[in-house]
Design a protein around this nucleic acid. Structure first.
Length: 289
DNA sequence: CACTTGACCTGTCCGC
DNA sequence: TGCGGACAGGTCAAGT
């Protein structure tokens, strides 16, 4: 669900909404797992800290504070970071918001700013997490050391992509591009969409996929992710941006969640199967096993 | 070592 | 209407 385009959309929203705001306090609600080192040990690093920047690496958000600490957030499946300005209280809800009054029962962490606005970390399934780390330590954490290159960097070309995928030569192409150490940010939606774009069956072994096909696949990954960012990401179930609003990429999806409908390229009926343990959508004509 | 599977959770949907 | 079970999918630990 939140994959690279969704996390990037949240990042852009937060950059507009919370940079420059001063934290009053942060509170973890009822779920130590969502915020392993909160609240007692971390309060002093939040209090009166100014939000200086919001960055993204792969599917992780990095909210930098003037206290030289960084809030690291992974939304996993159902995580949301929603900002609510003071003006929203009493003003009713925007009609395009997917969420109601906050906090609600999925709220795990509440950050209150000095001006009365709030940032809510909601997570229905509790897979997501927030951690407060010294900013200097962030590049050294295990995740940062292992995660692969950003696919949208212009410097990331087929020349870098192909050998990284071929490290997983013995598995399926879908499993390979879902591997975050191969390339950052691809999840189930954009794996299916880009493999359809490149006319590659997700269950094919990497060793049976040519370099030319991998090159096309990288182009498709870049194209799909850029398009999805333009559309504000995919709202399949839970995903919302920093204003609580849905993204519209799913309306443009060619195969994801479109089983039983016609392939936009050839008209054949799109099928749903399982590859790499995930629900997988294919055109049985365009994507030959 | 490389790869696959199961666990982590909860809400939703489907069939009985 | 209620209930059990399957399903959703990002990541990591455990298993093959």
């Amino acid at each position: 669900m939140p994959e690279l385009p969704e996390v990037e959309t949240v990042r852009r929203g937060l950059e507009q909404l919370i940079v420059g705001r001063i934290v009053k306090k942060a509170e973890a609600i009822d779920s130590p797992k969502s915020f392993p080192n909160a609240p007692r040990d971390v309060e002093q690093f939040f209090e009166h800290a100014v939000v200086t920047a919001v960055h993204r690496r792969a599917k992780v958000l990095l909210i930098e504070l003037s206290s030289e600490y960084t809030v690291v957030v992974h939304l996993k499946m159902t995580g949301q970071l929603v900002f609510v300005g003071r003006e929203r209280f009493g003003a009713g809800h925007p009609s395009d918001s997917l969420i109601g009054e906050l906090p609600d029962r999925s709220t795990r962490v509440v950050v209150e700013f000095m001006d009365g606005s709030h940032l809510y970390f909601n997570d229905q399934r509790k897979f997501g997490w927030m951690k407060l780390l010294p900013s200097l330590e962030v590049p050294n954490i295990d995740f940062m050391q292992k995660v692969g290159p950003e696919p949208l960097e212009d410097s990331f070309t087929a020349k870098e992509f192909i050998p990284r995928v071929r490290r997983r030569n013995n598995t399926t192409i879908k499993a390979a591009i879902l591997d975050q150490t191969v390339v950052a940010g691809v999840g189930n939606i954009y794996a299916d969409e880009s493999l359809w774009g490149a006319k590659i069956h997700p269950a094919r072994r990497v060793r049976n996929v040519s370099d030319d096909e991998l090159s096309v696949l990288l182009d498709e990954i870049k194209y799909i992710m850029k398009l999805s960012i333009e559309k504000g990401g995919s709202t399949d179930r839970n995903y919302v941006n920093a204003e609580g609003k849905r993204g519209s990429y799913i309306d443009f999806a060619r195969v994801f969640r479109r089983e039983g409908q016609g392939c936009p390229r050839c008209g054949a009926i799109i099928e749903k199967t399982k590859v790499a343990g995930r629900g997988t959508h294919i055109c049985p004509v365009c994507q030959v096993q």
